[in-house]
Simulated assay, not measured.
Amino acid sequence: MKLSNSFIQSVAILVMLAELPEKSYLKSSEISQRMGVSHTYLQKIAKKLNNAGIIQSEASKTGGYSLNKSVRDITFYDVFKAVENSDSFLNNVKTDVIHTMFLSDKLVDKYGNLTLDILKEAENSYLSVLKEHSIEEIVPKNSKGELLIIDWPLFLKNN
């Protein structure tokens, strides 16, 4: 389990969508332009976010992507589940080497299993922290503490 560029780019997409004025959409071409990533690649990420119910897609001339729920209700874990391979830390790890670390099967059972338990606990802690934090925490706010609103299409058109 490790974070990929897709995870960070997904977070960036969500922040941009959170900053849109109400009932506004951002086209995938606009997002990819701003982020400096391939349009095709961005669409793949957006599809995963859409399939997870985090964002929605409006197919029309004025459509694009928008959030499907409040940023306070979208956790980093939700994004992680949507775009990352959710295999365990220990998936595809050969644990049979544990048998070589100890001189007896009794020690393997005791300390080998303890080693695996520690690694599973670390993984659970990692996922727990992702669940505790929402995307809202990283969306810029104005002087009143409200989410900063940016008309991204207009901004991108003028820059």
Rank of each mutant, 00 (worst) to 15 (best):
K94V: 13
Y65C: 11
L49V: 06
S57T: 14
D78I: 05
Y77E: 13
L103V: 10
I149F: 02
E137D: 04
P140M: 12
H133N: 10
M16A: 14
S66A: 15
I45Q: 00
V37W: 00
S28C: 02
S128H: 11
N85C: 09
N158Q: 15
K94C: 06
I45L: 04
I54W: 01
D96I: 07
A12Y: 06
S134G: 07
N159Q: 13
L26F: 02
P140S: 08
D105A: 12
T75C: 10
I150N: 03
L116P: 10
E58S: 13
Y77Q: 11
L20K: 07
D87R: 13
G53Y: 06
E137V: 03
V71L: 05
N68I: 03
I8K: 10
S60T: 15
P21H: 04
E19T: 11
K157Y: 08
Y77D: 13
V93D: 03
L103F: 12
S70Q: 09
G36W: 12
S29W: 00
H99F: 08
N51R: 01
E121F: 06
N5D: 08
V71E: 09
I118Q: 06
S4H: 07
L147Q: 08
P21N: 02
S88K: 11
K120D: 12
E136L: 10
G64T: 03
M35Y: 00
K157W: 01
I8C: 01
D109G: 12
S29R: 05
H133I: 14
E136G: 00
S6A: 06
D151V: 06
N68S: 15
A46Q: 00
F155H: 07
E146F: 02
F89A: 12
N142V: 03
I45K: 02
V129I: 09
Y111V: 05
V37Y: 02
S24T: 05
V129F: 00
K157F: 06
G36A: 02
K69V: 11
G36Q: 09
L147D: 00
S32K: 09
D96A: 03
F80D: 11
D78E: 12
V97K: 11
S134C: 06
L49N: 03
T95I: 14
V83E: 07
R34P: 05
G63Q: 15
E58R: 15
W152G: 01
L156D: 04
K69E: 14
